[in-house]
């Protein structure tokens, strides 16, 4: 989970594999990469679609067309930071994630309202509001950049540094009082990748239905509010309503691990490649 963040950190030691931040970066000084949500926001803010933008969003889209919203679970450093806060609060294992299942629809409404209002704000003000001001990744990397400036004795803009640090701190405090509400309901970056979940090659699948004892530990363990309970129930009834492609699923693997712990013989939930029928 830490590996990509570590590659980003290597740039400060002089290893220039990935330079930049998770909002926008450049790979080996050749391939530009830009966050999918930032791409939409820039288009709306500048009201232009340029070749540079498309070229830099293309590799990202290709990657996440395969892996879906795996960005959140495997790349985003805030997943790790939030896990630390959760652990501090209550012991990670015992934390109850409120709002699984029936709350999902309401959550969806909130998050869509937030994402659309952010996009409209960008359109109205003509600046990419979220990516530039609020985005946790931008702020984290901006803070680290200023920190490097301090270490190297270069002039530092303390205004930016304080702002970025306090916004990250604010998110951590928010995480303490409302666990995972940011990731689930607000973060538009994750939402944008979640859209790709619907068409990505990777998906959740439910296998060996007879073995499932309906303990729903997987549902308890899921901190992103994926309606795993409904998913399993519908599968057991033989319905094909839920396809295993949830906009909130970040493929962190908590459900798979928990199921493996409960079931001695492997577990029921798998992450499957390609759109196999089951």
């Amino acid at each position: 989970m830490f590996s990509i963040f570590a590659v980003f950190m290597l740039q400060f030691l002089g290893v220039k594999i990935l330079v930049g931040s998770l909002t926008g970066s450049v790979l080996l000084y050749k391939i530009s990469l830009i966050d999918l949500y930032a791409f939409f926001e820039v288009i709306l803010a500048s009201k232009k679609l340029t070749m540079v933008l498309v070229l830099s969003v293309l590799p990202v889209v290709v990657i996440y067309l395969i892996f879906g919203r795996a960005f959140c679970g495997w790349v985003c450093p805030f997943d790790f930071l939030f896990k630390l806060v959760d652990k501090l609060k209550n012991g990670y294992a015992r934390l109850k994630w409120k709002g699984n299942g029936s709350y999902v629809k309401k959550q969806n409404l909130i998050s869509w309202a937030f994402i659309i209002s952010m996009l409209l704000l960008s359109l109205a003000l003509g600046i990419p509001v979220f990516s530039r001001y609020i985005s946790q990744n931008t702020n984290l990397f901006r803070f680290i950049g200023e920190l490097i400036n301090v270490m190297k004795g270069l002039p530092v803009n303390f205004g930016v540094m304080i702002f970025s640090a306090s916004l990250i701190l604010l998110l951590l405090v928010f995480e303490f009082f409302f666990p995972r509400q940011w990731c689930r309901n607000f973060c538009p970056v994750g939402r944008a990748y979640g859209l790709l979940n619907k068409v990505s090659l990777i998906r959740l699948s439910f296998e060996n239905m007879d073995l499932c004892k309906e303990c729903f530990v997987c549902d308890l363990k899921c901190y992103m509010g994926v309606p795993l309970k409904e998913f399993i129930e519908s599968r057991k009834k033989g319905e094909a309503g839920l396809s295993g492609k949830f906009i909130n699923c970040i493929y962190c693997g908590e459900c798979i691990l928990s199921c493996q712990k409960v079931q001695s013989g492997g577990g029921n939930i798998r992450v499957k490649f390609f759109n196999a029928k089951k």
Binding site: Q11, G14, K16, V19, G20, S21, T23, G24, S25, V26, S32, I34, D35, A38, E41, V42, A45, S46, K47, G126, I127, P128, S131, R132, T138, F141, R142, G145, E146, I148, N149, K152, L154, P155, N157, V160
Partner: peptide
């Protein structure tokens, strides 16, 4: 102003080349 997302690539590149001209 409407295109910059403050990703910091330009600043990082500038610092790595040893010029450190770009700040935010």
């Amino acid at each position: 102003v409407s295109k910059c997302i403050s990703c910091g690539v330009c600043g990082d590149v500038c610092r790595q080349l040893g010029y450190s001209a770009i700040r935010f």
